[in-house]
Write a protein that binds this DNA or RNA. Structure first.
Lengths: 300, 300
DNA sequence: ATAATGTCTTTTATCGTGAAAAAACAGTTT
DNA sequence: AAACTGTTTTTTCACGATAAAAGACATTAT
């Protein structure tokens, strides 16, 4: 089957949404940067849009002929990257229980189960290994280390070390740095979300990531910034599978974030440290309580 | 060509060295664990040894017939893993100059140049990416971030954070922990090396790694332990290419290590902190001075 | 009964291949 | 001449295939 054309399909769908807003499309290079794809893909998109009567295309002129209908879109599941598909399947297996520490991971079996080639699975596992949940036995299988209490503690230990340092660096940033604007915007988003918490509480996780990434970036250290990928990944799946008291938890977290933001703005290192510690402590608590006991008895 | 049999060749060579010491070889499973390979490989080795008249092999009886000759060994270069070959080639390119930050890395070109398949190169680059020296552009090339002064500073910042914490954890370990024995042995090795520094100074890098890994392990945190891979990798190549004042540098480092070990044994956190800081500071200095100016002007 | 050997099966490591996507080049249009 | 479109080349991504290596099962020896 070689390679799926999900890049094209995803860009096509996004391009359809663009159609709503204008009478005619911009130049090919411009569309390319807009959609984040190459001109080759842009032209494939335009060709198809012409074919289905969405636009009239003649060199520079790309006139919109009609509004896109729901059936013009490619199905969502066809727009996913192979890597995303594999990750989802793998994480489902991992969290669906029965995935005890020490268990062997079989590339071939995984590949067959998901319905993809072994190469893609191998590459996924290599990439995934930096999250510290699996480990390779040379010339042999991978070993699952398990999503244990020990893992959560090790993860949060680093997180706290890194974030405290980043927060201090953030507060020390010059007044004219663009981050203060970013922070103001984030503060607004927090307040808006707080006022509509009853209906939008599930949007918090996205906001959470944006906020913490902004802070980590202040460290100007690639290892700290990159480590947030590990945290984001864990929290992403954690949010998906632990919905208990989600609303309450998020409401509390928003409050802590706002206090944290206030502290950053005060540029008082003592206050920053205190607010940061407070939030991280409750974040750790949330993560820990979500780990089932059956998974928490193994040692690292 | 599919897969090279370097595992077999390497194990074969190591098995030859075993031949010197005994009149007959142990059982197949035992040999397997001894050499770190499967029984399948062990049997291939035995078959060849029988063929070349090194041993007489009949079921359990594996009698040594003659001493191995130099030409019994497989050439060293045939015992390397593909991953090692690729890493070496890649690092040579990287350090040989002309590798400026921002430069594109081409999988196909690399594969052709080294004479391996693209898959192996891809997998190497994915594994290598955690060192923070390269970055992937989705659906496109890799970008070299460059071995710059900024990189060295970011690396050492994390290293110092992690090692200070690990050293403190080490000193707090109970008296009956096995690490104290390990530390004693390392101290002896340091003293021995110090007394023969004139001839053996180049053995320091291996000792250095053993020492720091022991300390990092005391953190009982996989992220800290794993991060030492990054440091070890950088220092490994750094030692290879910067030979200026190697003897003097290593002599100083041994002294610092011994003071550091003394501090750990005293279990006085203040002393540990001071000794650790002092050593890390000079390690950073050594690394920084080895970065050519041409490579130190880019920003991260 | 335990632990070895002999044999067969499965999995991993690596390559070549081909379609998707990017990138480079050449020719047009404003 | 700068920016676009048309065309060709190159590279990335993913697969199936195959030898090496690991692992499982059956048999035999102590």
């Amino acid at each position: 089957m070689s390679k799926s054309n999900n890049v094209y399909k995803d860009a096509y769908n996004r391009c359809l949404r663009l159609l709503d807003e204008t009478r005619s499309l911009p130049s090919e290079p411009e569309l390319g940067t807009l959609l984040g794809v190459s001109r080759t893909t842009v032209r494939t998109i335009l060709a198809r849009m012409e074919e289905t009567g969405l636009i009239a295309w003649n060199k520079r002129a790309k006139t919109v002929l009609r509004e896109p209908r729901p059936d013009d879109f490619f199905p969502e599941e066809e727009t996913d990257t192979l890597a995303e598909i594999i990750e989802r399947s793998f994480m489902r297996r991992l969290l669906a229980g029965g995935a005890e520490a020490g268990m062997q991971i079989n590339e071939l079996e995984l590949a067959r189960e998901i319905g993809v080639g072994t190469t893609s699975v191998r590459e996924f596992l290599i990439r995934f290994s930096r999250f510290g949940l699996i480990e390779k036995r040379r010339n042999s299988h991978w070993v699952l280390k398990g999503f244990t209490r020990a893992f959560a503690l090790e993860l949060t230990e680093i997180r706290e070390m890194f974030e405290l340092r980043s927060a201090a660096a953030f507060a020390a940033l010059p007044q004219d740095s663009v981050v203060w604007g970013d922070l103001d915007r984030l503060e607004d988003d927090h307040r808006r979300l707080a006022s509509e918490i009853a209906t939008r509480f599930n949007e918090f996780s996205e906001l959470d990531e944006r906020f913490h990434r902004l802070i980590h970036r202040a460290s100007r250290n690639r290892f700290i910034v990159d480590f947030y990928d590990v945290i984001a990944m864990i929290f992403h799946y954690h949010y998906q599978w632990n919905k208990a008291q989600e609303r309450e938890r998020n409401e509390v977290a928003i409050g802590e974030h706002l206090a944290y933001i206030e502290a950053l703005k005060s540029r008082d290192l003592g206050k920053v440290d205190a607010a940061c510690r407070k939030h991280l402590k409750s974040a750790r608590q949330t993560l820990l309580t979500s780990i089932p006991e059956s998974r928490s008895t193994q040692k690292s």
